[in-house]
Design a protein around this nucleic acid. Structure first.
Lengths: 217, 217
DNA sequence: CCGCATCCTCATGGATACTG
DNA sequence: CAGTATCCATGAGGATGCGG
């Protein structure tokens, strides 16, 4: 654990816990899904093995992460505690703030489709459920993320290997633009490739935000 | 600037900009109010002078901070750019997340009343304006923060030296509890000391959140 | 004084090799 | 596979210097 700021301030205390290098990215990975040590290493290109082990220990002591034994075998799986999962809000907030940094595209940075899970959840979850259930894959760089729409809502997860009603192939920026509603499917001819049930894809990207409150003012 | 994560991910890109040690705390200080170099040093106990200079340069290059020349004299004042000011949301989010870390009290950590400005704004701004205008001081550890209530809303700022209709003296945790509405003034006998217009104080802490949307569902 | 720049020391991070 | 151990590079923290 790095040096404390020693300030009685919410932000400083929060950063005492999650401010160290890699910490929030580890939380991002666990927000995507609970994972084993090796999966974390893969999802966090650039992290050193000793650092990952250190950080996981720190986060566990702090109460952000918990080691669990998976049902199958006695393998260790890392997951967020309920309090750790509440970091979803600050993280989504930072992701929204970073939009100007993302629009210029990947440049030389590496990319994993699973990283789309967090922003896609922020954009799609809470939207009105489509009439028909469907399971749509989003393929970026040959990697798959799945969006499952049921009567009870929309879920976004890494692909679990099951059958898909449709597969959309596009660049990361396009996918985010479609999910955010700043791009319409019909305006992306040639940039987006759809296999399978196109209606299911349209249902997801055209879903309106579920009506929760009344109209403003 | 420290090493980039090299990941095409909103969170990673955001942290490339504000993830370095001290960066978000500098933004916190500038969120409280634009400040001169020396004021930043005072508001960030523990920071080394060279680090502060380095970070200010980095943040300026990144477009988060801007150096400005104050009207009076040709003194340099640091302030947030519009994009930098949008960090208010992730920061408030982290402050909310840190609540479990704050309830145990200051311990050995140092404290400055001005640090209350950001959380108090999050809790009070947007609340319904009281009928009468007033300017109330909140004194913690002998340092003053002011809350100004007008017809157009509630403002929270470091004390500007002007006259106050009332002064509330209490511990930081109590102040936050009152503002959050988890403590009622009447339940804090002996913990809170009010001088002056007590009604003005009650008006602020009892203000209900302004009605914006309709009822849920 | 204010606003930094320099210098020095030690803690932290990063890369890789290695072990149960 | 799931980490430790090791070594080197970098960054943080503290003191001090220095021009305006």
């Amino acid at each position: 654990m790095s040096r404390s700021y020693g300030q009685y301030c919410g932000l400083a205390r929060a950063l005492d816990v999650v401010g160290d290098r890699w910490n929030l990215l580890i939380v991002r990975q666990l927000l995507i899904a609970p994972a084993r040590y090796r999966e974390l290493l893969d999802g966090l290109p650039g992290v050193a093995t000793n650092l990952l082990a250190d950080r996981l220990r720190d986060l566990e002591t702090a109460g952000v992460v918990q080691r669990r034994l998976a049902e199958k075998g006695n393998v260790v799986v890392y997951a967020l505690t309920p309090w750790g999962a509440e970091l979803r809000e600050p993280i989504e907030s930072l992701i929204r703030w970073s939009t100007p940094l993302m629009v210029r595209g990947p440049g030389g940075d590496c990319f994993r489709a699973e990283w789309l899970v967090v922003p896609l959840r922020a954009l799609l979850v809470g939207k009105a459920a489509p009439r028909r259930s469907s399971k749509v894959g989003i393929a970026v760089d040959g990697q798959l993320v799945q969006v499952r729409a049921t009567r009870s809502g929309i879920e976004v997860n890494p692909h679990d290997g099951g059958d898909l009603d449709a597969v959309v192939r596009a660049d990361a920026a396009i996918v985010l633009g479609l999910a955010a509603g700043v791009l319409a499917l019909d305006d992306t001819l040639g940039l987006v490739d759809i296999d399978g049930d196109e209606a299911a894809v349209r249902a997801i990207f055209n879903a309106r935000r579920a009506h929760v409150g009344g109209s403003a003012h």
